[in-house]
Amino acid sequence: MVTLGLIGFGTISRAIVSAFPPDSCRWVALMREGARPALPANVSTVTQLDALISARPSTVVEAASQEAVAAYVPALLDAGIPTIIASIGAFSDPILAARLTDASRNSGARLVLPSGALGGLDYLRAIAALPDARVRYTSRKPPAAWKAELATLGLSAEHDAVSLFEGTPAQAAKLYPKNLNAAFAVALAAGIDKVTVSVVADPKTTGNTHEIEVESTAGTASFRLVNAPSPSNPKTSMLTALSLVAALSELLDREGCH
């Protein structure tokens, strides 16, 4: 039976665990002290990073936060444990990004950044070398996904779309650390300096919508993905967990564990 690790055990982690047969994996989840979630029979918890490393998981999936990436992932990579990161916005910190990249290179442990809620990243990587390339990424979600943010700004998107933000990927990652990992996935693929990010609360959208518009000497492109939100968290797309499952399955196949 393969041992796999998780950082956090919320909506995404539950979906990941449920995607694998219960008798095929043993999961160890790193959680905050005092957390008491209901757990499947094949999931145990630890509250210290050393305990997770001692369990020697074949792979760890981070599905918690940018702060969790900074706190735990460098040590996992140093220990030679392959790690899949959901909170890609953590790479907006150049010092942390360099630390993660160096740890992966030095230990040989794979650092995997899945596509998450997006598609078309192969196109963006292809045009990244073109100096004239320009990319606009727009996150368009129903007002329910931005209820707290709208209330804080004293705005209502009950009838018309409301623009909440426009700026750089790094600014977006810091302002919305739990909601705009997709924006930084675009930035990593195309080049941070080429991307503008917009955030829109739109009552007319039916799901979590990602719009990517590209112009370069290679041509123009437009991608639009309308993802069904997670039933238990409207800010997260169902596709995010599916992407992590696909990345984990591929990594296990490469390691001969699955």
Rank of each mutant, 00 (worst) to 15 (best):
A189F: 05
G207P: 05
V214N: 02
D202N: 13
H210K: 11
N208P: 00
E211I: 15
K194Q: 15
G191T: 08
S198K: 15
A201Q: 05
E213S: 13
T205M: 10
V200F: 09
T205K: 05
G219K: 04
A201V: 08
V214Y: 01
P203T: 07
N208Q: 09
S216T: 11
T217H: 10
G219H: 04
V199L: 13
G191M: 06
I212W: 03
T217I: 12
V195E: 02
S198Y: 01
I212V: 15
A218Q: 09
V199I: 14
G207A: 02
E215Q: 13
P203L: 02
V197L: 03
L188R: 14
L188K: 01
V200A: 10
I212H: 05
D193E: 15
A189V: 07
V214P: 03
D193W: 00
S216C: 13
D193C: 01
A189L: 10
K194P: 08
T209I: 14
T205P: 04
A201E: 12
T205Q: 09
G219I: 07
V199F: 05
V197E: 05
N208Y: 01
N208G: 01
G191D: 09
E211F: 00
L188T: 04
A201P: 11
E211Q: 09
T209G: 00
I192W: 08
P203S: 02
V195G: 06
A201H: 06
K194Y: 09
T205D: 05
A185P: 01
T206G: 14
A218N: 04
T220N: 12
H210I: 01
V199Q: 09
G219A: 02
K194F: 10
I192M: 09
A185G: 15
N208S: 09
H210S: 15
G207K: 04
S198V: 07
K194M: 11
A190H: 10
